[in-house]
Design a binder for these strands. Structure first.
Lengths: 190, 190
DNA sequence: GTCTATATAATGATAGAC
DNA sequence: GTCTATCATTATATAGAC
C-alpha cells in the first residue's frame, strides 16, 4: 500500500468536518486516522501535542475562514448593508451545508475542550457579533438596537442549526435565515 | 463507610444534570458513580443495559417533565394565551437555570446516542412545537402563522442557550425570552 | 513524513461477596 | 441493593524501522 500524502490544509479541513460532526469527546484519534487515511502516529507527527493540538488547529482554521469569508465582507463599507448581509447569508448557508452541518462553536463549547480553545471560540463569536453590529449601525440603527439585532441573528443561526439537526427537517435553517434577514433590517418600532 | 441509598427518582434527576452538562460521550460511568455516590456496579444493577439504559431513563424523565410542566399548562384553554405563555416562560427559565444549563435535546442530538433515543428527543420537540402552535392558534393566528411562531420560539430557546454558554453572558437567555414573547403575540403584519 | 508495533491509561461492563 | 475486585476493549500516546 502506497504512503499516504495529504497537504496540511486539506488535513485540517478534514479534521474540521470530523470534529464538527462528532464533537470533542466523540472524535477519537482512531476515527481521525480512518477518515483522513493517515495512521495515528502520522497524526501525532503533525500535531505533537496530540488531540488538543489537532482541535486547536481546526479552531484556528475556522477563525481564519470566519474572518476572510464572513467578517471582512460584512465590513466593506462601499457596499450597501443589505447587499453585504445577503452575501453573508450565501456564505453562511454554504458553510453550514444548508443547515445540515453543525457549528463548531456549539459543538466545542459543549465538550471538555481546554480553556484556551474555549477562549478562541468566544473571540470568534465576539468578532462576528461586532461585524454584524457595525453593519446594523451602517444601516442607520442606534448602537443599542444594532447590538440587539446582531445577537438576535446569531441566536437564530445557532438555534436553527440545533432545531434542524433535531427534526431533520431541511428547510428549517434556510427559512429561518430568510426571516432573520427581514428582522435584521426592519424599521426600529416593529 | 455506610451503604449508599438514593431513590430512583433522585438518581435519575442526578444523572440528568450530569448528562446535560457533559454530553453523551463526555459522560462516563466513573463520573456518574463519583457524583451520585453509587458504585459503578450498583448503577449497572439499576440499569442492566448499561449507559444507554441510563441515558434512556433520563430522556424519559425529561419527556415526562416537559409534558407535565410545560406542555399541559400550555394547553389549558380556560387560561388566556398570554398568561399561559408567561407561565411557561417562568418554568422554562427555571428548567434551564436562567440559561446556564444545557438543553438535553441539543446535547444528545449531537453525540452518538442510539436511534431510539434520538427518536424520543424528536418526539419531545414535536410535542412542544404542537402545543405552542395550538396556543398561537388560540391567540387568533392562522395555522401557518402559528407554526412559524412556534418554530421561531423554539429556535430562540436553543440559540440563546448556545450563545449564553459561548459568551458566558448571563442576561442573554432571559432577555431573549422576553423578546420572544413579544414576537410570539405581535400582530400578523410584522 | 509515514509506517508497524507497542506501552499505558481509561472506559464500559461483569462476577461474586456481603 | 450495594459493595470490592476484575475483565475485555478502546483510548491516547510513544518508539523506532523505513
Amino acid at each position: 500500500m502506497a504512503l499516504q500524502t495529504i497537504t496540511q490544509d486539506a488535513l485540517v479541513e478534514s479534521l474540521f468536518e470530523i470534529i464538527r460532526c462528532h464533537g470533542y469527546e466523540g472524535t477519537t484519534i482512531a476515527l481521525l486516522s480512518d477518515i483522513t487515511g493517515l495512521k495515528k502516529s502520522s497524526l501525532y507527527h503533525r500535531f505533537p501535542a496530540g488531540k488538543d493540538d489537532m482541535v486547536k488547529a481546526v479552531v484556528l482554521y475556522v477563525s481564519a475562514q470566519l474572518q476572510q469569508l464572513i467578517i471582512a465582507p460584512l465590513l466593506e463599507r462601499q457596499v450597501a448593508p443589505e447587499e453585504r448581509f445577503s452575501k453573508m447569508l450565501v456564505t453562511v448557508k454554504a458553510f453550514y451545508g444548508g443547515g445540515n452541518k453543525n457549528c463548531l462553536l456549539n459543538v466545542l463549547s459543549l465538550g471538555e475542550a481546554k480553556d484556551d480553545i474555549k477562549t478562541l471560540l468566544k473571540q470568534d463569536y465576539a468578532a462576528w457579533f461586532a461585524a454584524l453590529s457595525a453593519l446594523a449601525q451602517d444601516a442607520v440603527l442606534t448602537q443599542t438596537e444594532a447590538e440587539v439585532r446582531a445577537e438576535q441573528f446569531l441566536i437564530a443561526v445557532q438555534g436553527a442549526l440545533v432545531v434542524q439537526r433535531l427534526t431533520e427537517n431541511p428547510p428549517t435553517f434556510d427559512n429561518c435565515m430568510a426571516y432573520a434577514q427581514k428582522q435584521f433590517f426592519k424599521s426600529s418600532d416593529g
